[in-house]
Design a protein around this nucleic acid. Structure first.
Lengths: 232, 232
DNA sequence: CGGCCTGTTGATGCGACTCAATTCAGGTGG
DNA sequence: CCACCTGAATTGAGTCGCATCAACAGGCCG
């Protein structure tokens, strides 16, 4: 069990390049926690006792409004951590974490982690890099939401997804959407109806085609132009 | 000169609680840089050689769209740092920094700072706390932009400004807007015309009153209700 | 006085959300 | 194997918030 956790820890980006001694400490403090689909891992506003590493599954971090709409701030994939910010700001979780699939996680208790952090400069450096990337990500979303319209956000998303999954952007490449269209809409800051219409428009101009949720990029140039385009 | 910089360093939140030895290192590496109103401190996308501490003045961090609109991601006040994320992610500045007033800053070169960071757990911890607070701030803005309408964002902003400047929220409290209304609009993700109309509506229902840019909160309860209200 | 910048107010148009109806796909049970 | 149910996805019509365009008022300065 301990050695299995150890194997898992090696695959966490946050722990890249750590010494064996540090990994041992992490191994000792990590608590394995599993959740089934639809379960909430933590709720926005709850006091944080630690943060999580996702080993297997898919997690959404969401904000929801009083009238039931929700915005997906981030989709967490295996190897990533979430809920970190709450640990360092002496504060509560800024969003709610919900499993989109059955999930295996490791819970890292705050106090023990802070101790280790003080003793491991490399870990601190990794943590800062991780949070910096998060800041970038959020910055980008803010830019999109404030300055771009839905079509630009969708175009950018499709292009990034293409690069991530296929390694490059090129006409004819094809890939699956990682989440349902309803979720994707919430992630793009819109609703499923609008997403549906926008996708239909992309198909209409020949930018993409779709077969059962599988997307093919036909004209990356047009997509890039749409992604660039400012509001209006 | 050195001892004056030293005094300045003590007032930077990021350096709270540091030992004299660490402050000396920072003192040695910090470079004083001044900018006049409207000057750009750095541009989005430029490779980062380090980050900045604002000693005096006011700085806006902005994203701008191809068609000229701009969104103010953050307003930086004295004692705060900015441009940190670029240092840890081996990357470029995520936004452009422009002075709204004449500014005095300290520039902290990346390499020297990373060295010090590895030797000072307390500094690393402070840095993590700082970035966590930033994440919170951005998270909140994302929530606002995606789920709330302009009136809710404005109401929340006014209430927070009241608490910050007056220490509490209460009918009759009065305070100045820290920036022009055009800038405030860009900060709230809208344009000056809409801000103007929304303020007018707030005055109309007796929530606030205004005298030459000086705001008086008349009915915090209504403001809180508006701030809470979801979209539509 | 005349330019300039900021802020206000009005009229109009567009994007996107809402509501509602329909289709489609997947899973279940008879 | 087909009928049925359920949730997701699509499509249409109507509405609303807000950006846009335009005109105008007030303050500041050369």
């Amino acid at each position: 069990m301990s050695t299995r956790t150890r194997e898992v820890l090696r695959k966490i980006y946050l722990f890249a390049g750590l010494e064996g001694r540090d990994l041992e400490s992490l191994d000792r403090m990590a608590q394995s926690r599993s959740f089934s689909r639809e379960a909430a891992i933590f709720w926005e506003g709850r006091q944080a006792q630690g943060f999580y590493l996702l080993v297997e599954g898919l997690v959404k971090l969401v904000k929801s409004s009083p009238d039931g709409k929700e915005y997906i701030m981030r989709l967490v994939t295996p190897g990533e951590s979430f809920g970190e910010a709450a640990v360092f700001a002496e504060s509560s979780y800024p969003a709610t974490a919900i499993c989109l699939e059955d999930c295996r996680t490791l819970f890292i208790p705050k106090a023990a982690f802070l101790n280790l952090l003080a003793a491991s400069p490399r870990l601190a450096q990794n943590m800062l890099a991780t949070m910096s990337r998060l800041l970038y990500h959020l910055t980008r979303q803010l830019e999109d939401l404030s300055l771009k319209e839905v079509s630009a956000r969708l175009a950018r998303y499709l292009l990034e997804l293409c690069r991530e999954s296929q390694g490059r952007i090129e006409a004819g490449l094809t890939f699956d959407l990682p989440v349902s269209k309803t979720h994707l809409a919430a992630y793009l800051g819109t609703i499923s109806e609008t997403l549906s219409r926008t996708l239909a428009r992309f198909k209409g101009i020949g930018a993409i085609s779709e077969d059962k949720g599988r997307i093919t990029v036909n004209d990356p140039v047009i997509l890039e132009k749409i992604a660039r385009g400012g509001k209006s």
